[in-house]
């Protein structure tokens, strides 16, 4: 390749200038939500342990931990992370079997993933926060 048309490597991308389609953001959020769930696994397993232990102290501890506002907010975040990961996962599985591959359908399903996971987060989140 003549030097005048050789592109400079390595190429650094200006991330803040890149405009992704909505499906791109949904995809990145799939990764972010998965990473968040992984990082918070110890908390979730600990809560499972407290919820199932037979001692009265564990029951009281479970109530105290889940009653804490910071824990509630973390759980709310994890709730969204799980629901987004769940919905986006279904979208990925459908695309794997060639359903919704066309540009328009792929955009529509990305919108559906974002909207449905947020609505479900609202519904279950209000339950989590004790609204009903």
């Amino acid at each position: 390749m003549p030097p005048e048309i050789r592109k400079p490597r390595p190429k650094y991308l200006a991330l803040h200038q890149i405009r992704l389609p909505l499906a791109g953001y949904a995809s990145i959020l799939h990764r972010v939500s998965g990473a968040g769930l992984f990082l918070m696994l110890p908390l979730l397993i600990w809560l499972l342990q407290l919820s199932l232990a037979s001692s009265a102290e564990s029951a009281a501890m479970f109530g105290a931990v889940t009653g804490n506002l910071l824990v509630k907010l973390i759980l709310l975040g994890l709730l969204w992370a799980f629901l987004h990961h769940f919905c986006m996962g279904i979208r990925i599985l459908l695309i794997d079997i060639q359903i919704g591959v066309e540009k328009q359908q792929a955009h529509a399903s990305a919108v559906a993933v974002m909207v449905v996971s947020l609505i479900l987060t609202l519904i279950f989140g209000l339950k989590l926060l004790g609204a009903y």
Partner: peptide, 9 residues
Amino acid sequence: HAWVGVRDI
């Protein structure tokens, strides 16, 4: 599942 996903990251 988490192993494959986190490893990919």
